[in-house]
């Protein structure tokens, strides 16, 4: 197959071109075009069922797109992509429901993929794990099991677990939606720190304060489409599309 990827600038990490995704007859993504450069932070918002999760899950191929092109760091995702796991280890993901490995201690959660995928030595994997546990400020929980931690702590562990793979990009799918209100900030703080350090991030969230302070661009989706894409100032103060205006008025008064 010829590489139809147009000459994107070399620092483009994610490129989605005319991506469509169907579940049976239902079209969940409609003509999605998105480009994310190294170091950029993108916030994705939109009503429930608008396709936000589906879009970011296509980026690490937890969902397969039906047509169009997705190119991650120069590698196009196709059926024939030789080693999807080679791409996945460069793309970290943080889920709404944390999804820690329940049968492993926190430390083992952080070491598993390093050992199996990166083939890191045990000592080095442990060191990296402890380093990132300190970064998310819970090194003292290393030997506990996930169920023994609060939701906010679990989500910080999940972020540390993704970071241990030293990914190029991290995808967040509503990382604070399952948290009690008093735990949201501890997770947002960690994410804000990451953003400041230059991590490339695509983040589905309705935390508008976070979007304002961190995002380079905000993307609004509705009914499977990207309806509006703008810098945060413009997005919040001067939304162009009627659907965006309606959505913003709902969540901001909420």
């Amino acid at each position: 197959m010829t590489n139809i990827a147009p000459a994107a600038s070399p620092e483009t990490l994610i490129q989605m071109k005319s991506v469509n995704k169907y579940f049976g007859n239902f079209q969940a993504l409609k003509n999605i075009n998105l480009e994310v450069k190294k170091g950029e932070k993108i916030v994705v918002c939109g009503p429930s069922g608008s396709g936000k999760s589906t879009m970011i899950r296509c980026i690490n191929r937890l969902e397969e797109h039906t047509d169009g092109h997705i190119i991650i760091d120069g590698n196009e995702l196709t059926d024939k992509v030789k080693d999807i796991n080679a791409i996945r280890r460069e793309v970290g993901m943080v889920f709404q429901s944390f999804n820690l490995f329940p049968h492993m201690t926190i430390l083992k959660n952080l070491m598993l993929a390093q050992r199996l995928v990166r083939k890191t030595s045990k000592a080095e994997a442990r060191e990296t794990a402890m380093h990132f546990l300190e970064r998310v400020k819970i090194p003292e929980q290393a030997d506990k099991y996930p169920v023994q931690l609060s939701g906010g702590q679990q989500q910080r562990v999940a972020i540390a677990r993704a970071l241990c793979m030293k990914p190029e990009i991290i995808l967040f799918d509503e990382p604070t939606s399952a948290l009690d209100p008093e735990m949201i900030n501890e997770v947002l703080e960690v994410m804000t720190d990451l953003a400041k350090e230059g991590m490339t991030m695509v983040c589905v969230t309705h935390e508008m304060g976070f979007a304002r302070s961190v995002a380079d661009r905000v993307i609004f989706m509705d009914a499977g489409e990207i309806v509006e894409e703008a810098e945060p100032e413009d997005f919040f103060l001067n939304p162009q599309n009627e659907r965006t205006q309606k959505f913003l008025s709902q969540i901001l008064t909420h």
Partner: peptide, 20 residues
Amino acid sequence: GVLEAGAALGLSVRQKFIYL
């Protein structure tokens, strides 16, 4: 979700089966 987390970290189908 646990298996998806494994996949997202780059674990192969076999590794997910054995370790998760």
